[in-house]
Amino acid sequence: MKDRINDVQTLLFQDDGVIPNHPSLPVLLYKGVWAKDSSRAASLLSRNGWGNSWINGVFDYHHYHSNAHEVLAVVSGWVQLILGGEHGQTVRLQAGDVVVLPAGTGHKRLDASLDFRIAGAYPGGMSYNTRTGKPGERPEVLREIQEVPVPDTDPVYGQEGPLLEI
């Protein structure tokens, strides 16, 4: 297990006044973890207890989910995302990479290959909303983010993954 934890990059973002991000849970970045199985990402996520999945792209505007954590697994191609809001961090993901976004974490597509596809899913198949940082949303989303429970399983490793340790 220790090796798995060492292979996961963590990123923690602060509330920037528009995008709240999560106050205590970090983004988890699993690089190349499903390089040989990227086309099976949605079924692998489901096997590990993450459902309500879809395969598509990522919006080209800043957004977040205040009522659910989200996992994104690159199925094909590559994508450049900015995480954490306008002044967050740019990451490049490619087929086989997986990123876990705690509730409230901003994300936006900056660029992508023509063949880019990503699978998204939510712990236990939770329903999710899409928020963009409108001022009127703020009091409600800050409460919602705090109420989202830590997932029961790691989307990549299931019952014993880094998400549960970190």
Rank of each mutant, 00 (worst) to 15 (best):
H22I: 03
W54D: 15
E140S: 11
P149S: 03
D37M: 05
R92G: 08
L29K: 07
F13Y: 06
V156P: 00
L11E: 00
L142W: 10
N21H: 08
P123Q: 02
P135V: 13
G17M: 09
W50G: 04
V150E: 09
V99I: 14
R117K: 14
R117E: 13
D3K: 13
Y64V: 03
K36D: 06
W78D: 15
R131Y: 11
E144Y: 09
N56D: 14
V91Y: 01
G85S: 07
D7Y: 00
H69S: 05
L29P: 06
N56L: 12
S24R: 10
G125F: 06
E70I: 05
T90H: 05
D111Y: 06
M1K: 08
K2H: 15
L93M: 13
E160L: 10
L164D: 07
V27Y: 00
L25I: 10
H63T: 04
Q80D: 11
Y64H: 11
E70H: 11
Q80L: 11
Y157R: 06
R131I: 14
N48P: 12
G158E: 09
P149C: 02
A73W: 07
A35N: 08
L12K: 15
A68W: 00
G136K: 10
D16E: 10
R131Q: 14
W34A: 03
Y122N: 12
Q14P: 08
G32C: 08
G77M: 09
P151V: 10
Y30T: 03
G51C: 02
A68P: 01
D16K: 01
I166L: 06
V71I: 12
G120K: 07
L142K: 13
S53L: 10
P151T: 12
R143P: 04
R138F: 13
D111F: 04
A42T: 15
F116K: 01
R131N: 15
G49D: 02
A103W: 03
P20H: 01
E144K: 15
P155C: 07
G161C: 10
I55F: 03
D152L: 12
G158D: 09
H62C: 04
E160Q: 13
L45V: 07
A42Q: 14
V100P: 04
V58Y: 05
S24L: 05
A41Q: 08
N129G: 12
G161H: 05
S38G: 09
D3Q: 14
G120Y: 10
P139C: 11
V150F: 13
K2F: 15
Q159S: 15
D152M: 09
A119Y: 02
V8T: 08
V33S: 02
E147W: 00
L81G: 03
V98P: 06
L110N: 12
G124V: 14
A103K: 02
H65N: 05
I118R: 07
F13M: 02
S113F: 06
E86A: 15
D154Y: 04
T105F: 01
Y61E: 12
N129P: 07
D97W: 00
T130K: 03
E86L: 13
F59C: 09
L163W: 00
P20V: 04
I118T: 10
V71R: 02
H69A: 05
N48E: 14
